[in-house]
């Protein structure tokens, strides 16, 4: 299972909308106030496609990540699947 959770609140809705446009993304229904945005392989989201300002953008994975960040800057968020442990051993 690869993807990220999004709390079902207005300020993060544009993130879900932007992710939904990718062909390899499945946006799951809200459960317990969270959506799971699932993707196959890799996912790139450009901040300009979300309309989020930086103060919100840089917290947009706050609901939880099942994957690995390979790029996260003011322009783009790039995620891939991972089997790596959360913490270094």
């Amino acid at each position: 299972m690869t993807g990220f959770f999004v709390l079902d609140v207005p300020e993060f809705a544009p993130l879900v909308a932007a992710a939904r446009r990718a062909p390899n993304v499945t946006v799951h229904p809200v459960r317990g106030s969270y959506r799971f945005v699932e993707f196959d392989g890799a996912l790139d989201i450009r901040r300009s496609d979300t309309g989020l300002n930086e103060a919100v953008w840089f917290g947009c994975l706050t609901a939880g990540l099942c994957g690995k960040i390979v790029r996260f800057d003011a322009e783009q968020l790039s995620l891939i699947a991972t089997n790596e442990p959360v913490l270094p051993l």
Binding site: F5, L65, V86, L87
Partner: peptide, 18 residues
């Protein structure tokens, strides 16, 4: 990133309860 990844497990458990 470590927090976000570890939190996902808590969110999954929360969803199973709700």
């Amino acid at each position: 990133e470590q927090l976000w990844r570890a939190k996902a497990e808590h969110v999954i458990a929360h969803q199973e309860l709700h």
